[in-house]
Design a protein around this nucleic acid. Structure first.
Lengths: 203, 203
DNA sequence: AACAAAACAGACCGATCGGTCTACCTTAAG
DNA sequence: CTTAAGGTAGACCGATCGGTCTGTTTTGTT
């Protein structure tokens, strides 16, 4: 599990109180935005003392980064295992958007109720590209695309694999926004159909 | 100008102080998120008295909605005039992504420095689909897609025009996220190439 | 059992939050 | 000129913000 992790962060080895803080903070941030939720609310929901929070995290920013790392681990691992057993580029694309569709329809308990992409939202709240939060969001997406590209590389040459992966990620982002902002539950299927055309040119 | 407006909101007929509040609020919200900016900061930047703000807006939420309406008008009108003179579906697609590319490269002064989609960000901060802010964001996107579909309808039957418009909007969202989160300035060109494949199936 | 680490309740700090209000000044309209 | 509308400075409200700290209890380790 730790080896398969996309980051050096291993949530399962974190102390229980820290885990609780991170998970609760994630739920609240994901629902009401990072700046819309104060640490006192997190403390109230968890019943944890403020001193304890500051024992584990030097600041709210540190907590936010830990929350990002946690979500990164959960999301990355889920997506990776969803496409892991694909046996062709075609099947990879199919699995890619099928996973997305399940997410939009709230069929993935570990990802919580769909409210869009937490990394997209966090990057929107911290728009300075130099801010650690923004950078973590960018890295998450780069890494996900890298994972997909590597997988496609089994069947395509690396240039084509990289290009297709980038295109699939662009489509993923588009579908997520359409699903979240407009409530369009068919966005994943829509993106999948667009992706069919990409496969023809990839071969 | 008012007739071409996508909404009943006409910013140019709004009192000067109100305009100033809205424009300054937009700049601050767009940079530091809606919840990350307090009204006192807006007042400090504008030099306007708090009583005046509450004379024009019943609450912060009302101010936010006015800011959305303002940005809606600016963005919608800009995008519409960018594709207005296209003489074919192909040229419409070309203009659609060329406009996006200019925006990403900060070549559109009226839209301010590119930091992603304000509606996407606002919907992320107000994730409850019933909230007026979220609804306004959704409506903005639905209307933009409708405008594009209507334009394409000059050359395609209405079903095909609608489908193509929806696909182009999905690609637009994807490109915006890639450009904003990962700083990928080539995202518009990338999306344009994907769109070429869509045109073949649209005819 | 002794000690250290983790955790608790809660007070405190300076600052800010969104919003209300008084007293007064300036501008616009009739 | 008079009145109404728009606008100002700034005090105030209850609440919350992120963060610091004291004193005490609980839990974990040796």
């Amino acid at each position: 599990m730790t080896d398969a992790s996309a980051t050096s962060f291993a949530f399962s080895s974190v102390p229980a109180k820290q885990q609780q803080l991170i998970q609760t903070a994630f739920t609240l941030f994901y629902r009401d935005s990072i700046h819309g939720v104060g640490i006192n609310q997190i403390l109230q929901e968890t019943g944890i003392a403020k001193k304890t929070l500051y024992h584990h995290f030097a600041s709210k920013d540190e907590l936010i980064l830990a929350v990002l790392a946690y979500r990164d681990e959960v999301f990355f691992n889920w997506y990776e295992q969803r496409i892991r057993h694909a046996t062709s580029a075609e099947e990879t694309v199919q699995f890619w958007f099928s996973a997305l569709d399940d997410w939009f329809h709230n069929r993935v308990a570990e990802l919580q109720e769909f409210r869009g992409c937490f990394f997209m939202h966090s990057a929107a709240e911290f728009t300075d590209p130099a801010h650690p939060v923004h950078q973590h969001c960018a890295q998450h997406k780069t890494r996900l695309s890298g994972m997909l590209s590597k997988h496609l590389g089994q069947w395509l040459d690396s240039r084509k694999a990289k290009k297709l992966a980038d295109d699939l990620c662009l489509l993923k982002e588009g579908a997520i926004v359409c699903a979240q902002v407009q409530g369009n539950k068919k966005a994943a299927r829509q993106a999948a159909l667009i992706a069919q055309g990409l496969l023809i040119t990839a071969h």
